[in-house]
Design a protein around this nucleic acid. Sequence first.
DNA 1: TGTACATCAGTGAACGCGCGTTCACTGATGTAC
DNA 2: TGTACATCAGTGAACGCGCGTTCACTGATGTAC
Lengths: 208, 208
Amino acid sequence: MRESQTAEMRPYHHGDLRRALVDAARRILEAEGPTALSLRAVAREAGVSPAAPYHHFKDKAELLDAVAQEGWEMLDAAMGKAMAEAEAPDKLTAIGISYVCFAREHPALYRVMYDAARDKADLPEEMHDNEDSPYCKVRDTMVALGADPGDAIDLELATSAAWCAAHGLAEMAGFKQFDHLKEALGGETPFLRAIFRHMGLSPLDRRR
Amino acid sequence: MRESQTAEMRPYHHGDLRRALVDAARRILEAEGPTALSLRAVAREAGVSPAAPYHHFKDKAELLDAVAQEGWEMLDAAMGKAMAEAEAPDKLTAIGISYVCFAREHPALYRVMYDAARDKADLPEEMHDNEDSPYCKVRDTMVALGADPGDAIDLELATSAAWCAAHGLAEMAGFKQFDHLKEALGGETPFLRAIFRHMGLSPLDRRR
DNA sequence: TGTACATCAGTGAACGCGCGTTCACTGATGTAC
DNA sequence: TGTACATCAGTGAACGCGCGTTCACTGATGTAC
């Protein structure tokens, strides 16, 4: 049955099953949410036996980690793009909005990312450790907008505050409670912008 | 065995099994976290057969809702206490800190509360609908600190921003990433206070 | 006050389910000579 | 170029598990007369 259903038959060896499994996991997340994401379901979605994934991942957690990591990379790309495209005084808000929009567009993936982070009690290293990590991008934007780079502690606090605020907004922006605010302000993005303004995270706001 | 192990034998009818089940669920959450919270485990912890809970809750979700609701009531109480005890200019930060501390002290319960809220895409009604709800407490504190009560939209934005910020901080405050900041600032509470200051949520900060 | 009976709140066994993981296996591939 | 063989990456059946839920039941309680 399976082998007759398409002209290009899948060969016995897959080629890049690891890749295919991560993609399958992403598809399940988008379609059915995090609770449907079992190892068996991923194998099923990839058209492979339930034992096959074990040649590529130690266990389920390792597969989930790979999915999460890809999510962080996507988020990184979205933030980088937003930063590059925005005008200077708006850069920080633009990054924040891109963050929240990513979480809103991929809610299940975002949950997997954060659940993994929570289990480890930390964000993945790539998010804050190297020089062009998202964390450093935000921090450097703070400086570019007038934060004092000499006060290291304060700069780190400012960056951390922005990150926490974005995460909180990302998780709550979908609540129905906010529907009439979005309507009054003319849409989701103006709403996010207004909330960020109230959070007063930009050094520009703080010096005003 | 069971009946001989204690002088006061549990009678066939429990008396208040509903109460006992919610308590048992809370105990499991504290001890083993949200993943261990199954209906069967709750019944087991309460010393009752797996079918017994069905005389008090329609299904597992209804039990979880009851647990979550009790959590929101505890959170409400903590926020109310913090507000009552703080001096006027510090009231808002004090409420925020009490919120975050609650989440940090009952992380598993907080997750159950938020997961339930996320499923419904809203906070429970009691949190924002009546006049002395936590939401209204925060909003009125905003006004007392100088926010303009005439601009209803702006006031609601300010309150919502504060809530999102607190939630984000609550979820992230435990990350190891922040350990050295806490150390540099002399503890968890000064750290939280500093982050909140950077979030610039108080109307006092905003007019300065 | 006593008794018949309806109702309530438990029991314990069973249902089917999907899960993560392991195992012995086999087909395909790559390499040494 | 051909062949023997090690290695790799799959299969499919099976493991034990705990889960949510249902069922027929029974012991305890409350009520009407």
